[in-house]
């Protein structure tokens, strides 16, 4: 790692002030950021440690509203019986991080805002991984783990374990910045960068993610991840679904894919197809097909289209409590 300064603010306001300076980066659990620094991928002058900032850590269940502080560790969330009972799919998403060390260190905010694992990005070729003459290293190179829904030149995938579920739930992100607090849908935290300078999240300088808030009442959610190994391994594909309305009919269905696109990929057409429908193996299969409509696989990731279809089908099955 290159040399850097370090500040440990006690309050959100202090953290915001420190992060407004150029070259400052927020340090949460460190499991991603330290690797980026070791690999010299992102230059940083100062780390602003959020570990001691008051008000960023904790879980509140208030009626049907679940509030999770960004610095809550994945393990703390997993151990919170109330949160897991209210939203059992959380357990699946967290257990997908099959390492107690990462669950103890990694935070909810860190999971949501971790940088892409794209091996070109991690080797210093940039988020878009373009050659000097503008060709995509991803399309010409090895793209087995890359996006099946690329967005412009962005072909990496969003790696968050929690984002698909939170987006499916319609959760809100609470962000603090120099201008105070703003709330936005979790999906609006993300963007597909179109230039080498842009990042894949929408936080402005000085802004920090304070936490997320979701209404967990009156809906059924499920997460299904396809991982090759049962031990610690990135999912090859993930699907999260939220069904609202009483069974067997789904008044509304939200289907979101992870590891499929540069952002959590909302399969809107698939959700629409199911809305107002009874879930049967036929409607579920139709939704799974609709979820991958428009996929643009590359030379080495065609299999991920099949994985997406399967993940959607199985997530819907779990959410509806049916054998798929």
């Amino acid at each position: 790692m290159r040399p850097f300064g370090y500040a440990a603010p006690a309050t959100v306001q202090q953290a915001v002030g420190l992060l407004a300076a150029e070259g400052s980066e927020a340090l949460a659990g460190g499991t991603d950021l330290l690797s980026l620094l070791k690999d010299d991928v992102e230059p940083v002058d100062r780390l602003v440690a959020l570990r001691g900032v008051a008000g960023l850590s904790g879980i509140e269940l208030d009626g049907g509203t679940l509030r999770i502080g960004a610095m809550t560790t994945l393990q703390e969330l997993r151990d919170h019986d109330g949160a897991i009972a209210a939203l059992p799919a959380l357990a699946v998403a967290i257990d997908g991080v099959a390492s107690p060390q990462l669950r103890e260190m990694g935070t909810v905010g860190g999971d949501l805002l971790q940088r892409p694992r794209c091996w070109y990005y991690r080797r210093g070729f940039g988020l878009l991984a373009l050659t000097a003459d503008g060709r995509s290293m991803v399309t010409e190179g090895d793209n087995r783990y890359h996006a099946i829904f690329p967005a412009g030149q962005a072909r990496f995938v969003n790696p968050s374990s929690l984002a698909p579920l939170l987006v499916a739930l319609g959760a809100e992100a609470v962000v603090h910045g120099p201008a105070g607090e703003r709330r936005l849908p979790v999906e609006a935290l993300y963007q597909a960068p179109q230039t080498a300078e842009e990042r894949e999240n929408t936080l402005a300088p000085g802004e920090i993610l304070a936490g997320v808030e979701a209404n967990v009442a009156g809906s059924r959610s499920a997460v299904y991840e396809v991982r090759q190994r049962r031990s610690l391994d990135w999912p090859l594909m993930a699907a999260a679904v939220t069904l609202t309305g009483s069974e067997p009919r789904a008044e509304k269905a939200r289907i979101v894919l992870g590891h499929a696109a540069p952002t959590p990929h909302v399969a809107a057409a698939a959700g629409d197809l199911l809305s107002g429908q009874e879930l049967t193996s036929e409607t579920v299969a139709a939704a799974a097909d609709a979820a991958v409509e428009g996929a643009q696989p590359m030379s080495g990731n065609r299999y991920k289209v099949q994985l997406a279809r399967t993940a959607v089908r199985r997530a819907l099955g779990h959410a509806a409590g049916m054998e798929i």
Binding site: T131, E140, G141, R229, L232
Partner: peptide, 30 residues
């Protein structure tokens, strides 16, 4: 049999998985 391989990049000529994240060893539960 299931996990391990060198993944050289035809574009850059570098190994894309010179790490333990995408160079995968079998774990205890695998």
């Amino acid at each position: 049999a299931l996990y391990e391989e060198w993944i050289p990049d035809p574009v850059s000529g570098r190994l894309l998985n010179a790490d333990m994240e995408f160079y995968k060893l079998a774990g205890l539960v695998d």
